[in-house]
């Protein structure tokens, strides 16, 4: 039912905002979507600017802020930013590589009932993960998971970007997450930022895409965010959004306050404004790139029997691979099934 509302009307404000709170990072992951963008080096908002922005998010009734980066734990004032969001009743979800988590920090996070934490691990073995995320990152991330579990953080998930090179370890990662009482969240690999350089090596084969679709049908407790609507089967239809939420439900704020439709579309073509110069509410309503995405019609998809399941898939993947926004998702499962 939500698609009906999102297709026909623009929400008054985003439901959730992806906020890349810093461009700094202590890892150098090969598939990073943020590295290599101009905003990654433009400097971060000050704490006072963050507070003013949160006040505005509260005023326009944004429910949730997904805090990422860069590595958000590198900001010394992160806990103050989280506290301020929670004071305003805004739920926070922190996406971290986990390597800076210790017992003391884990204890503070576990005491924040409005905080969800996602730790990125991209392989069930140190060999696989570290080849992607850097030497020693698997052990340190797992240590972070253990700290959070020990301190009783309830809303914990392990996030994995599904790649050709870790595909065979997905189920082992699912078991690992269950062992720690965490949820599994699988994210789609998209050719944005530094990931463009790794696309040929890492993107899933057609056979893997078909297998992943079947896996997601079998394990419905695996979270996917808005990642895999181009491949999910009918039986996952009500488990999440079945269309791209960029500029309809969500948007992305870069470290310097620049606004884009989503984290994967941080390109000058999609620049929508800056929260230091213009209220987000106004950017949300007026930005040309947002209205472009809202009015996007994937004509080639409308007659497809899967249209209600994906609405043409991810515009970002289409943009980067086909230099078009209105073409079908290049990883559309129907097209793949017909070719196989």
């Amino acid at each position: 039912m939500k698609q009906e509302f999102l297709s026909s009307k623009t929400l008054s404000a985003p439901v959730n905002v992806t906020w890349e709170i810093t461009g700094r990072c202590n890892l150098n992951c090969r598939h990073c979507l943020s590295a290599g963008t101009a905003q990654a080096h433009a400097g971060d908002l000050s704490l006072e600017q963050c507070r003013r922005f949160i006040d505005h998010l509260n005023r326009i009734r944004v429910f949730q802020v997904n805090i990422g980066g860069g590595e958000p734990l590198l900001r010394e004032d992160l806990l103050e930013i989280l506290d301020y969001c929670h004071l305003k009743g805004i739920v926070t979800c922190i996406s971290t590589n986990g390597v800076m988590l210790d017992n003391e920090l884990a204890k503070k996070l576990a005491r924040m009932p409005l905080t969800y934490v996602q730790i990125s691990i991209d392989g069930a073995t140190p060999e696989t993960n570290d080849r992607i995320r850097g030497e020693g990152s698997y052990a340190r991330a797992l240590q972070g998971v253990e700290c959070l579990t020990r301190q009783g953080l309830r809303n914990l998930s392990i996030n994995t970007v599904v790649l050709r090179v870790n595909f065979r370890e997905i189920h082992e990662l699912y078991r690992l997450a269950r062992f720690y009482g965490a949820k599994t969240r699988l994210s789609r690999f998209r050719p944005a930022g530094r990931a463009r350089e790794a696309w040929q090596e890492y993107h899933l084969t057609k056979q893997q895409i078909l297998e992943l679709s079947a896996y997601l049908s079998e394990y419905k407790d695996v979270l996917t965010g808005d990642s895999f609507f181009s491949i999910t089967a009918e039986d996952r239809k009500n488990l999440g959004l079945n269309m791209c939420g960029a500029a309809k439900m969500t948007c992305c704020v870069a470290p310097d306050g620049s606004v884009y439709p989503c984290a994967f579309l941080q390109e000058s073509y999609f620049y929508a404004g800056n929260v230091l110069e213009q209220p987000l509410e106004e950017i949300w309503r007026r930005a040309g790139s947002f209205n472009l995405l809202r009015s996007l019609k994937k004509e080639a998809c409308t007659a497809c029997p899967r249209f209600d399941l994906c609405h043409g898939g991810c515009p970002a993947v289409a943009f980067f691979l086909k230099q078009e926004l209105d073409c079908p998702d290049p990883e559309c499962i129907r097209q793949i099934s017909e070719q196989e």
Binding site: F5, S8, K9, L11, S12, V15, R61, F63, G89, L114
Partner: peptide
Amino acid sequence: RVRKEAFGLLFYNI
């Protein structure tokens, strides 16, 4: 949580 939208009401469960 709830907010008003053009179509009616949008609820969010934290």
